[in-house]
């Protein structure tokens, strides 16, 4: 007899806790407009605003004269833990003095190896690189993720000193 009472008591207790749980989910079902937090990601791409500090990819800003602030000092290359930055040099003749001077040829950035730790940005003495907020970089081949950050024909800005 006792077992039967316990059996039915268990069923009623189960139904009661079920109702308690359903009350919570029922609230969200009836207040869907107020409580909904889901973002329709690929559809809201035009209005999607990332936070300004969000680390998406390393970029090198250029101004309207196609000039950047990178002197090629390779501080970022040293600071990078994964070897995702390579600075390639060239020796160019300075038109004023006629001496040969080391200048940056290519700023090679392997995005596929980058962990976006921000150490290169902190290390840069001239604020030449910064983190960009774009993040959609799915490609079919890893080679496509190697970028050359300085644009072809770009120069170092005159006011940037090493």
């Amino acid at each position: 007899m006792n077992a039967i009472v316990r059996y039915f008591a268990g069923i009623f207790k189960g139904l009661k806790t079920l109702a308690t749980g359903m009350k919570v989910t029922g609230y969200y079902f009836s207040h869907a407009r107020k409580e909904i937090i889901t973002q329709q990601y690929p559809e809201n791409r035009d209005t999607l605003q990332m936070f300004e500090r969000f680390r998406g990819i390393v970029t090198m800003p250029h101004d309207e004269n196609n000039e950047h602030r990178c002197t090629g000092c390779s501080a970022c290359e040293v600071a990078c833990p994964n070897g995702s930055i390579e600075i390639l040099w060239q020796r160019l003749e300075d038109p004023e003095t006629g001496k040969k001077k080391k200048t940056i040829d290519k700023f090679v950035y392997h995005y596929s190896m980058c962990t976006l730790c921000n150490l290169c940005i902190l290390a840069c003495p001239t604020d030449a690189i910064k983190m960009d907020q774009t993040f959609e970089y799915a490609v079919y081949d890893r080679k496509e993720l190697t970028f050359i950050l300085n644009k072809p024909g770009s120069k170092v800005r005159a006011d940037v000193k090493e």
């Binding site: 936070f51 500090r53 969000f54 976006l116």
Partner: peptide
């Protein structure tokens, strides 16, 4: 999600914040 947004705004990343 709310905590991750707080992290993202201050640190720049949601999970591996460094």
């Amino acid at each position: 999600e709310m905590i991750n947004d707080i992290f993202e705004e201050t640190c720049g990343a949601r999970l591996t914040m460094n």
